[in-house]
């Protein structure tokens, strides 16, 4: 019981990475030693942490993607391995399916948060910044507390029960959630387009798309080309007098 509480707490701490702007306390190399510490075997925790970090080094949340959730995966994997007296291999074998399962939960929570956004926008339109702050913190608490509770319950249920539970979920549902997560950013981009696009400007969206699809340029390159093209259009081709520039001669002198 005590162990379950402490592991739940460690798992919640992992999600507090979002509270500190991404200081990396959600990485296996930090969490596994913490699990070891609360279970009284720091040494094993550190060694498992090194192993999991190597495996999960490429698993990071960049951009809009939601990768397998390494936090709950490594915390529970490490905990079960230490509690059953086994080594890093078992930790890893457990961490991978748990990470995929908790990824699905995390996607669900991100969807619940998305459903709170119309409320946040309504608060914004009312000038109610306190209300917006409440939604901000409730969103954070939702993820952190849920994941803490999930880790707590998992340890109570035990390693075997956990494993069979993970296996009982149809892989097609998990896989389906994963592919849906890849599609969901389309809604965000559509919202951006609705905000920015006009008949005259639509061609620049097409240009960015073509550069990335046919020429496979990275975002950075597209951005720099965008800047160059914008400067060419505005200052080289459209070199007119900007409104208000020659209101006073002083400014022209000043520019020289």
């Amino acid at each position: 019981m005590m162990n379950a509480l402490l592991i739940g707490l460690v798992n919640a701490i992992g999600y507090c990475d979002y509270l500190f702007g991404g200081i990396m306390i959600n990485r296996p190399i930090v969490l596994a030693p913490l699990v070891g510490l609360v279970l009284g075997d720091l040494q094993t925790g550190v060694i498992i942490g090194g192993t999991l970090e190597l495996v999960f080094m490429g698993v990071v949340a960049i951009g809009a993607a939601t990768p397998p959730d390494t936090v709950t995966g490594s915390v529970l994997g490490t905990a079960f391995a230490i509690m059953t007296g086994s080594g890093p291999e078992i930790a890893l074998a457990l961490a991978l399916p748990i990470a995929m399962l908790s990824q699905a939960i995390k996607i669900g929570i991100y969807l619940i948060r998305a459903s709170l956004m119309p409320k946040a926008i309504k608060y914004a339109e009312e000038g109610n910044s306190k209300g917006m702050e409440r939604i901000h913190w409730a969103s954070f608490a939702l993820l952190t507390v849920s994941m803490g509770v999930i880790a707590f319950v998992s340890i109570l249920m035990g390693a075997e029960a956990m494993e069979s539970f993970v296996n009982s979920i149809p892989t097609q549902v998990l896989e389906g959630m994963k592919s849906a997560a890849g599609l969901l950013p389309a809604v965000g981009f559509a919202l951006l387009l609705k905000m920015m696009i006009s008949k005259k400007m639509a061609i620049f969206y097409v240009l960015g798309f073509v550069l990335a699809s046919y020429m496979q340029l990275p975002i950075m390159a597209v951005t720099l080309m965008g800047v160059v093209i914008a400067v060419i259009i505005e200052f080289v081709i459209g070199e007119g007098t900007p409104a208000g520039l020659n209101k006073s001669d002083e400014e022209v002198l000043f520019d020289e």
């Binding site: 599609l183 389309a186 981009f189 639509a202 240009l207 960015g208 990335a212 951005t223 093209i229």
Partner: peptide
Amino acid sequence: LMVVGAMTVSMIN
């Protein structure tokens, strides 16, 4: 807009 166009390709899976 160009960046959004490029992100359409690279960030939607």
